[in-house]
Amino acid sequence: MRTLLLTALLAVAAPALAADVGKPAPDFTLKDLDGKVHKLSDYKGKTVVLEWFNPGCPYVVAAHTKGSLVDLAQKQAKAGVVWLAVNSGAPGKQGHGIEANKAAAKSWSMAYPILVDETGTVGKAYGATNTPHMFVVSKDGTLVYKGAIDNSPDGERGSPQGGVLVEYVSSAVGDLGAGKPVRTAETKAYGCGVKYAN
């Protein structure tokens, strides 16, 4: 009985190791830099893109200044896609802090919220390992893509693997919009490690 109780407690306390493509995306509630609350399940009925973010990471800098993240969110927003950045950096780690994130958002004209996940709970529930690490959630709340923003691991679209640039997130959102299965549902994310507390 005691073992059963312990097992049940652990199951409640421990988040899943990583969200699986094809399964429901883990729901979460996080505040953005202005204190506004965002609950993933409130966006049901819309495609949601989650972008793991760290303004101090040079890959994120490259992606937002020269690479695939320069204006992709803006374009997708026009098509009704909800785009949310998530910073799972712990206090004292690179890229943590409201002001640093607000400065980056202003500098890179990010018109979408940056959600604060300093305990890392949401990042770990999704298995976010890198910044940027991208996740696409379909209108019915299913995780349909996780991985890199594109296939150019320099962050600036300058070195695509195989010589041809593939924008995985654009492609996944495009497939969803066309009512087709996502062609590439999972790739290896590149970038900095997420600066979790441990």
Binding site: G56, P58, Y59
Partner: peptide, 13 residues
């Protein structure tokens, strides 16, 4: 030459 080096806390490009 473009490259990246990392330590336990951060990467540099």
């Amino acid at each position: 030459v473009a490259f990246s080096v990392c330590n336990a806390d951060r990467c540099l490009i």
